[in-house]
Design a protein around this nucleic acid. Structure first.
Length: 424
RNA sequence: GUGAACGUAGCUCAGACGGUAGAGCACUGGGUUGUGGCCCCAGCGGUCGCGGGUUCAAGUCCCGUCGUUCACCCCA
């Protein structure tokens, strides 16, 4: 035998039994998004590399070490989409959506690719559901975006989620804060780990991510961005909190919530689940008022979120979600002779043409074996065809729930199944 | 990229001290000359991740490698 090939590291197959739950999650999400007025957009699976290096930011981990980048045959540098916001912003610009009535509200469901070391809830290819609202700087839009995600989680039955909320300020107030924080870090440099000292240079706010207890303790006394917000950012943040209250959404302020993309301004948020272990983030996002301009479009504010399908499914599985059952056939055809097999194939076709899910044996199983399959398939009826039935031009219809059998002409049997099928 | 644990049948897992591979489930057939879900019997199914080493002998010990899992990092 040739050497078997397996799925690439960090990827996995989504088998038939996995599909119903996934499709349910996605369809619930689409229903919520549409109810809030978001329209679906699909962007390419790969983009020019510079979209991400510019949009997401050169200093981010994503750009520095996690992108699937390749050169195409024309010598252009391309990258498999690592996140959803930059591509949608690109499409917004490319299609002149700034000429539409604002805000322009879009949603997506797309695979994302990041070259990371896989672990529980983290893959090299994963799927995100996300929304983006472009063109309005109103805090009400931030609140709506968070409200959409909260509504989705509620309708999926996700329990025990914590919402963390922060403000990153804007280009008016962040530089002053960064300077203050940098000064603090420089003054206390011996209190921090090597990595934090590095981060202090690149992007001082990233030090808040550090899990080293000593660093955390040292950061307790660090200046907080929420205390340095300019009046406009402070007013925005205050109004957002009012709008969350209106929607009955509670949150915990977390001034250390610094997300992995450089484009965030003002609002950042993240829903976390204690059920997920180390990868506790189920979904999050924020405002990115400079992103569109950064990648070459007209100055346009925006807010959005991304939420991981795999993480939702994991949290659902661990928190007792509601997995919808798979679809069963209505009819299983049992054929006992070669001639009966021909008739069974024909009846299966008739059933299926009428929208009735029908299954039959292709493995030459014994009568008992076929009945066993019929039972296993959870079909409502077994249509049994043998010498006797063919001679009498009937099929034996066995109700697999009650065990009651009766003889019916083929057409009537099919009609019976069609009626049953309509009730489902 | 770093650290730890694990890798035996399709799946879940046994295999003290190295001695020539087992169970349950699943699958197929039979018990019922043409009838499921329970039960009984039988059968099918394994290069013990891969490569090297130690040994008379390696699933078992050693080294390497790949993969999985968990954690760090970061994120969905």
């Amino acid at each position: 035998m040739a050497e078997p090939v397996s799925a690439p590291k960090g990827t996995y197959d989504i088998l038939p039994d996995d599909q119903p739950l996934r499709r349910w999650v996605v369809s619930q999400a689409e229903a919520v998004f549409q109810r809030y007025g978001y329209g679906r957009i699909d962007t390419p699976t790969f983009e020019e590399t510079r979209l991400f290096s510019r949009g997401v930011g050169e200093s981010t981990d994503i750009v520095r070490k996690e992108m699937y980048t390749f050169e195409d045959l024309g010598g252009r540098s391309m990258t498999l989409r690592p996140e959803g916001t930059a591509p949608v912003a690109r499409a917004y610009i490319e299609h002149g959506m700034h000429t539409l009535p604002q805000p322009v509200k879009l949603y997506y469901h797309s695979p994302m690719f990041r070259y990371e070391s896989p672990q529980s809830g983290r893959y090299r290819q994963h799927h995100q559901l996300g929304i983006e609202a472009f063109g309005s700087a109103a805090p009400e839009v931030d609140a709506e975006v968070i409200g959409v995600l909260a509504a989705l989680y509620r309708e999926l039955g996700l329990k025990e989620l914590d919402l963390r909320l922060n403000s990153m300020g804007c280009r008016e107030c962040r530089p002053g804060y960064s300077a203050a924080l940098r000064e603090f870090l420089a003054k206390n440099t011996e209190a921090f780990c090597g990595e934090c000292r590095e981060r202090a240079q690149l992007n001082p706010m990233r030090t808040f991510d550090c899990k080293v207890p000593a660093c955390r303790e040292a950061l307790e006394t660090a200046p907080r961005l929420t205390d340095h917000l300019c009046p406009a950012c402070a007013a925005h943040h205050a109004r957002l909190q009012e709008c969350l209250a209106v929607q009955d959404i509670s949150f915990v302020p977390d001034h250390t919530l610094v997300r992995g993309m450089d484009y965030y301004t003002r609002t950042t948020f993240e829903f976390q689940s204690p059920l997920l272990g180390a990868q506790s983030g189920v979904g999050g996002g924020g405002r990115y008022d400079d992103l569109v301009e950064t990648i070459g479009g007209p100055a346009t504010p925006g807010v959005g979120f991304g939420t991981g399908v795999e993480r939702i499914i994991l949290a659902l599985a661990r928190g007792g979600g509601t997995p919808p059952g798979p679809r069963h056939p209505v009819v299983y055809l049992v054929a006992l002779t070669d001639e009966a097999r021909r008739e069974a194939f024909s009846l299966a076709h008739q059933c299926r043409s009428l929208g009735v899910a029908a299954e039959l044996d292709y493995m030459s199983r014994s009568a008992k074996g076929q009945m066993k399959q019929a039972g296993r398939s959870k079909a409502r009826y077994a249509f049994i065809l043998g010498e006797q039935e063919l001679a009498d031009h009937v099929v034996t219809v066995r109700d697999l729930v009650s065990g009651i059998e009766r003889s019916l002409p083929g057409q009537e049997a099919v009609s019976l199944a069609a009626a049953q099928s309509a009730d489902l």
